[in-house]
Design a protein around this nucleic acid. Structure first.
Length: 333
DNA sequence: CATCGATGTTGAG
DNA sequence: TCAACCTCGATGG
């Protein structure tokens, strides 16, 4: 679930259903009681995702910073906007592209053409079923270890299992933001691309590690890493400084493209050579959405041998050695 | 029902 | 380099 696209979708959900409303905050689990008390009763002013981090800004200069980590999750219930409405919230609010002293909105409008049911969390589907059966109550009792519950008159959001969950002030928020590499949906434009290019091209670190480094670029995880490198025909072990600039720029633009698709559809769809029918099937089945991720032992989709799995920096790396190549060294300027 | 592994990060050693 | 975090779907018995 949580690579950058998921967090952007969560931010849009909060924007559609929580921003501008007064929020009751609690910690049913108890581990965040103090933080919840600090937020309780305040208006939510803004909801922004940068990479895998979510920032919910409340009145009184209090910002809830959440990182889901490996298995954290937000579950929404009550009167919750469907996907199309979430997306429109992103476009309506988008005015600036700066990541400066204030948390600002989305600079690009997300298209509205996806099915409302696509990618809905399992709990949300269950809640909808209960509603159809007339078994729903609001707010629903918290289930399991809910670190934070945010509640408006009509909507509720429960947070479970986050790596990070803290109330911070704007100064601290800027410190955190300053350590994050560019996010194509926040820092659009040539400056962001140039920052990414500079960060990659000065390092001897393998490109497969640089793409996962959140100070180099925000939001890429293990799935998008593997798929981006396959799409670029690039050997993950290639040192950043040996990747031709043109190819680094192409990586940035491809990440922007995949991220936009991910936010729009709720799925990490990383294939782009599918027919309409194939695409629909892949979206629905959860299988065959990727070229190489978790496809070790299978033939490379482009031929030239099989997909392999290996360890890179303590994570599973999937790639197709016959297809993905290390660029020939060139005389540098 | 028990166990494993995961789309992630931090911090100890 | 590795355990911990603390959740849950997938897998096996």
């Amino acid at each position: 679930m949580p690579e950058g696209h998921s967090i952007h979708r969560i931010a849009l959900q909060f924007r559609a259903n929580f921003v501008g409303r007064r929020v009751a905050a609690s910690s049913p689990q108890g581990r965040f009681a103090a933080g919840a008390a600090e937020l309780d009763g305040r208006l939510m002013l803004e909801s922004v995702a940068v990479g895998k981090q979510l920032f919910l800004e409340f009145e009184g200069e209090r910002i809830l910073r959440v990182h889901l980590g490996l298995y954290g999750a937000w579950d929404f219930a009550g009167e919750i906007s469907a996907d199309a409405t979430i997306a429109s919230a992103g476009g309506r609010m988008g005015q600036t592209n700066q990541r400066g002293t204030a948390l600002t909105g989305y600079g690009e409008e997300i298209a509205l053409d996806f099915a409302a049911s696509m990618g809905a969390p399992r709990r949300l589907r269950m809640a909808e079923q209960e509603k159809e059966q007339g078994l729903d109550e609001f707010p629903p009792p918290p289930v399991g270890a809910v670190r934070v519950r945010l509640l408006t008159d009509t909507a509720v959001a429960d947070l479970r299992g986050p790596t990070a969950c803290e109330v911070i002030n704007p100064v601290r928020a800027n410190t955190v933001l300053g350590k994050l590499g560019p996010d194509p949906l926040v820092d659009s434009g040539k400056d962001a691309e140039d920052r990414f290019v500079a960060a990659v091209r000065k390092k001897p670190t393998p490109i497969g590690l640089l793409l996962m480094d959140q100070s180099v670029v925000s939001g890429i995880g293990n799935v998008y890493r593997a798929e981006l490198l396959f799409r670029a025909r690039l050997d993950p072990h290639t040192p950043g400084r040996e990747v031709p600039e043109k190819q680094v720029r192409a990586l940035w633009r491809d990440w922007a493209r995949l991220l936009e698709i991910g936010v729009r559809t709720g799925q990490m769809m990383t294939k782009d050579d599918l027919s309409g029918e194939e695409w629909a099937a892949a979206m629905g089945s959860q299988a065959d959405r990727h070229y190489v991720y978790k496809r070790h032992g299978l033939p490379s989709p482009r031929g030239r041998g099989n997909v392999v799995i290996e360890d890179m920096g303590g994570r599973n790396l999937y790639w197709a050695p016959g297809w993905q190549k290390r660029p020939k060294p060139r005389t540098e300027t």
